[in-house]
Amino acid sequence: MLILKPNCECCDRDLAPDSPDARICTYECTFCADCVETRLGGACPNCGGDFTVRPIRPAAMLARHPASAERVIGQHEACAA
């Protein structure tokens, strides 16, 4: 089951569990669409893989299996402001 991280690991933007802007790689590294397109060039800075739109968990299932509240911030050169 996906963890559904609550933020972009690059810019720390909030990403709600139902956000259409959340992107993940095969390791569930989580970034916003803007960072994936403008800062990361479509490649995960952790594993080098590509991204896909993060699936949205149905509300009834989200109540049973909530999203993570643990924020993750990477220390990637491309994300430095």
Rank of each mutant, 00 (worst) to 15 (best):
R71D: 06
I73N: 06
G42I: 08
P66S: 05
M61S: 10
Q75M: 10
N46Y: 08
E77R: 09
I73P: 01
P66A: 06
P58G: 10
D50G: 14
P66N: 04
N46Q: 12
D50P: 04
F51L: 14
P66L: 08
R39W: 00
C47N: 03
E70Q: 13
L62M: 15
R71L: 07
E70C: 07
A43D: 05
P45V: 00
T52N: 07
R39K: 11
R39I: 00
E37R: 06
P66I: 07
A60H: 11
L40A: 02
E37H: 05
G49I: 05
C35D: 02
E77L: 13
N46R: 11
F51W: 08
R54I: 09
G42E: 05
A63K: 13
G74F: 01
R39S: 01
C44A: 03
G42D: 06
T52K: 11
A59T: 14
S68W: 00
C47V: 03
A67K: 01
A59V: 15
A67V: 04
G48S: 03
I56A: 07
V36N: 01
F51H: 06
G41M: 05
G41C: 03
T52C: 09
I73R: 11
C44E: 00
G48H: 02
C47G: 03
H76L: 12
G42P: 03
C47S: 07
A69N: 10
G48P: 00
E77W: 08
G41H: 04
C79Q: 05
M61E: 15
Q75A: 15
L62Q: 14
G42H: 06
C35L: 02
T38D: 11
R57H: 10
G49E: 13
I56C: 05
R64F: 09
A63H: 08
A69D: 13
N46G: 09
V72C: 06
R54V: 10
Q75L: 14
S68A: 14
P58N: 14
G49M: 08
A78G: 06
R64T: 12
P66K: 05
G48K: 02
D50V: 14
I56P: 01
R57W: 09
P45L: 02
G49Q: 09
T52M: 11
V72M: 05
T38W: 06
C44V: 02
G74K: 00
H76N: 08
T52S: 11
T38Q: 12
G74V: 02
Q75R: 12
A63Y: 08
T38V: 09
R71Y: 06
T52A: 12
E37D: 10
A43N: 07
A43P: 00
T38R: 11
A69Q: 13
R71V: 15
I73D: 05
E37M: 04
L40I: 01
G41I: 04
S68R: 03
P45Q: 01
M61D: 12
E70Y: 08
P66Y: 05
M61G: 08
R57S: 08
V72R: 08
D50A: 11
P66M: 06
R71T: 12
V36S: 00
H65I: 13
A63W: 06
T52Q: 11
V36Q: 02
C35T: 00
I73K: 09
E37I: 02
A69I: 15
N46W: 07
E77A: 15
P45N: 02
H65F: 15
T38E: 14
A60T: 13
E70D: 14
C79A: 07
A67R: 03
P66G: 04
I73W: 04
V53A: 13
V53C: 07
C35R: 01
R39Q: 03
P58Q: 13
